[in-house]
Design a protein around this nucleic acid. Structure first.
Lengths: 156, 156
DNA sequence: CTAGATAGTGAACCAGGTTGTCTATCATGT
DNA sequence: ACATGATAGACAACCTGGTTCACTATCTAG
């Protein structure tokens, strides 16, 4: 039986790999006119999506409380990535929508992630990369968004 | 050319995979007498190692300020995982060492990580898992510890 | 023996999470 | 028609784990 590395290397490599993608994303986003965006903003905007959402829904999607979602929305609003409007159908609700600036960030993120994936593909070979993705799918939950990403590392 | 998934799936899967390992580690650690330990504590204790360190060194290893390292050490001391003694060679320095309780947590973590890796190996096949690890090594920095793990997601 | 570097600490601040509480609005059953 | 309960959002107080700035104590070198 060939020697397996110590088990603790695996999680570290996964985190490091994640980090390196995110770091490169944000370095590139900074160069492309989005210097103030931070990792969780990208995830949150991805979760908001083009059609908008509400604080409660967003909290539900991300697995955080509505208050936390509300704070994050406030921040994103302050830096110009989203805007809130009252829902005329239900005046309790406020619809959170990406601004054109936010849409731009989201589109650029998608492009940059594709480019980064292409770089990995060039390094590892597309077949190996697809195998890696396929393997990761086998060991992770189906729902991509329930990652409780914002702050989970600090609080759990 | 066969269809590649959108690039943003990859980082999410990496994070999710990391999370799931860490969550299972801590669920198991909780069952084995370490209910208060939290994700970053494991990393920090791993970084402290059996021979001990100092706040400045630890901060350097983890990529955070010495003050942040000091706070974390304080927390670990409070819950009994490390202890600090003055260095007789240089009375400015305080050597941080794992207590037997801390050693126990570290040993159990290592065992649990090995078990979790074995589970992945059973799910994916040992060859695929080794391929995955090898691929991750190709796209991550060599130094396993420079992950700025504690809180990095919140602050960057 | 003084000047500069280094170890640790404290204070003030920030981000992002939590729980608990409150108001406004919607929806429903009598 | 209206009281009751559920829901959306906001506010406050608090926790963690980061940051910077400032300070003391100690070591090291010229």
């Amino acid at each position: 039986m060939s020697s397996a590395p110590p088990g603790f290397e695996l999680p570290l490599r996964l985190l490091l790999a994640f980090r390196s993608l995110i770091d490169e994303l944000h370095a590139e986003l900074g160069r492309q006119g989005h210097p103030d965006i931070r990792p969780m903003h990208g995830f949150v905007m991805q979760a908001i999506g083009p059609q908008g959402t509400t604080a409660v829904d967003l909290g539900h999607t991300l697995g955080v409380t509505k208050q936390a979602a509300g704070k994050t929305i406030e921040t994103l609003e302050r830096i110009g990535y989203v805007e809130r409007t009252r829902d005329p159908e239900d005046t309790r609700r406020k619809i959170v929508r990406l601004t054109p600036y936010g849409m731009d960030a989201l589109a650029r993120s998608a492009q940059i992630f594709d480019d980064l994936r292409a770089r990995w593909s060039a390094t590892l070979g597309e077949d190996r990369l697809q195998a890696l993705e396929s393997d990761l799918r086998k060991v992770t939950p189906a729902d991509l968004w329930r990652l409780d990403a914002p702050g989970w590392f600090g609080t759990m």
